[in-house]
Design a protein around this nucleic acid. Structure first.
Lengths: 260, 260
DNA sequence: AAATTTTGTGACAAATTGAAAAAAACAGGT
DNA sequence: ACCTGTTTTTTTCAATTTGTCACAAAATTT
C-alpha cells in the first residue's frame, strides 16, 4: 500500500470512528508505529487531522476540503491577462454572473478587491475566493454537487438563474471552433447557456489554446455572445473569422500594464 | 502504441482504479519503468495526475478554503452520540434535509458511508463531507453566502426549499427552552423553519448544554417537531416537561454500542 | 540514409520504512 | 508538590525501494 492510499485510509477511518490510537492504526494498516506517526505528522501539518497523545482525531478546523480533479492548471499568465481585461467591464453596483472554469476563477481573483458587487455563481471555488469580501454579496446558485468538481448543476441551478437579471455574465469554454463554444460536460453547458440568458451582456473568456481543443457538448453560438476575451497568442487564421463572428473581440496583452 | 495513446491509457486506468504503481503500469503497457516515469512526469506537468512514490494518482489537489469562525468545538462525544441515533432513522432511498450546525455536521459525517440518499443542505461543510460519496446525491440549496460562516441563507434558499418534499429534516438549534428552539442568526432561523415545512418528519438535534444557553431568534415551536434527539446528560428537570412537549424524545447514550 | 524522437540501461541520489535508543509526556502513589 | 515507572514521541541510522540523470540503442520521420 502506497503512502497516499494510507493517508486516505487514515482519514477515512478517522471520519468513521472519530479517533484512533497510533497502535490500532498501525495494526489496521499493517505498518510500524513509526510510519503511522510520520503519517499523522504530515496529515496534521496539512491540517487534516489533529494529534493527540497516543493517537489522532479528525481535525475540525475552520476550513473546508473539497477534493476535486484539477483538470487544467496551464496557461495561467494568459488567463490572468484575460481577467485583467474583463474586470475593466465591471463597475460598482453591477450584478455579475460568473461561470465555473479556471479562466473565470482568475476573473474572480481579479475581482476580489472590488466593492459593491453582487456575484452569482455556480462554482464553489468562485464563492471561496469572494466570500470573505465584506463589500460583495456572493450568491451561490443551488444545484447538485457534481462529483469530483466543485460546482453545481442541474434543474435547480437553471431554475434559480431565471429569477435573476444581471448586467454581465462571464462564462468560459473548454473548446472553441467556428461553430461556437463547447464544454466537456453537458450539465455545465446547460447551466452556461441559461446564465447567458439572464444577463444583458455576455462575455466569453478562454485562452487561445482552446481553439485547438475539442469538447463534446455544444454550449454557445457566436451570435449569442457580445464580447469574446482571449489572449494575444491567438493566431491570425482564427482572428480573421472570429472578428466577423463576434461584434467585439479582445486579445488580451500578456504584459501586465502595456497601455491605458 | 504511440506515446499519446499510452498517456490516454494511463489516464483511463487511473480514473478507473484511482491509483497505480509505476511497476504495474509498466507491465500493463509493456514498456520499461523509465518510460512510465517519463510519462507520469509529463502528465503531472500538465496537471493531469499526481505523482506518488512508486506510482501515480489522479490529480485531486484542489482544496477550497472557506475560512469561518469556529464557534463550537465542544461536546463532540455528545454530538456523535446524537448522530448515531439519527442515522438509525435514515434508510436507503430517502431524501434528507440537513441544516447547518455542528451537530448536524456530525450527522453528515455519520451518514457519509451510507448509500442511495439524496441530501439537501444549505451548509457548505455538509456538502464537503458528503460530496465524495458516489452513491449519494448532494444538492446544495442556493443562497447568499453568509460572511464568516460556510452556509447559505436568504430568499433564494427559502424559495428553493419549496420545490422539495423529503422524508426527514434534521435541523439544529443554538438554544432550547420551554418556548421552543432558538438560533443566533435570524436568517438561518428562517431557513430552518422553511426546512421543517418541506419534510414529512422533523428531527431536531442538539446536545443537552443547549438548554442552558440563550439565542435571540426564535426558530421552532415544540409542536412543529416530531422527534428531539439530545444526549443522556439531559437533567431530569428538563426531561419532565420536554417529554410532554414533544411526542418522541431520544436521549442518546454516550457509550458507542451499548444495546439496540 | 540522416535526423529526430522515443525508449532502455546503468550508476547514483533521494525517499520510505522499520528498529533501537534517547527524550518527553503522562499517571499514580507517596 | 515530588518522584518514579510506564507509555509515547522524537531522534538517529541502516536497509530497501524508488526516482533521476546521462548516454546508448532502437524506432520513427524526413
Amino acid at each position: 500500500m502506497k503512502i497516499n492510499q494510507r493517508h486516505e485510509k487514515i482519514i477515512e477511518l478517522l471520519s468513521r470512528e472519530g479517533q484512533f490510537s497510533v497502535e490500532t492504526l498501525a495494526q489496521r494498516l499493517d505498518v510500524s508505529l513509526m510510519t503511522i506517526r510520520r503519517d499523522l505528522k504530515t496529515l496534521s501539518q496539512t491540517g487534516q487531522v489533529s494529534r493527540t497523545h497516543g493517537g489522532a482525531v479528525l481535525s475540525r478546523t475552520g476550513s473546508i476540503n473539497f477534493l476535486f480533479q484539477q483538470r487544467e492548471n496551464q496557461n495561467l499568465p494568459k488567463k490572468q491577462a484575460i481577467a485583467r481585461e474583463v474586470i475593466r467591464m465591471i463597475h460598482p453596483g453591477n450584478g455579475i454572473i460568473l461561470d465555473n472554469g479556471s479562466t473565470t476563477l482568475e476573473v474572480a481573483r481579479a475581482m476580489s478587491s472590488m466593492s459593491d458587487l453582487t456575484v452569482l455563481s455556480s462554482s464553489l471555488l468562485v464563492a471561496s475566493v469572494l466570500h470573505t469580501n465584506e463589500r460583495m454579496e456572493v450568491v451561490l446558485l443551488g444545484g447538485v454537487v457534481r462529483k469530483n468538481f466543485p460546482d453545481l448543476t442541474g434543474p435547480l441551478t437553471e431554475e434559480n438563474l431565471k429569477g435573476f437579471r444581471v448586467h454581465l455574465a462571464v462564462v468560459g469554454a473548454d473548446a472553441a471552433s467556428s461553430e461556437g463554444t463547447f464544454t466537456h460536460d453537458v450539465r455545465t453547458a446547460r447551466v452556461t447557456k441559461v446564465m447567458t440568458q439572464a444577463a444583458d451582456r455576455v462575455v466569453v473568456v478562454f485562452d487561445s489554446s482552446k481553439f485547438t481543443k475539442t469538447a463534446l457538448a455544444h454550449c454557445l453560438d457566436w451570435k449569442d455572445i457580445h464580447v469574446v476575451v482571449t489572449d494575444e497568442a491567438c493566431p491570425e487564421s482564427i482572428r480573421s473569422w472570429l472578428n466577423k463572428a463576434v461584434s467585439k473581440v479582445i486579445y488580451a496583452p500578456l504584459t501586465p500594464s502595456s497601455s491605458q
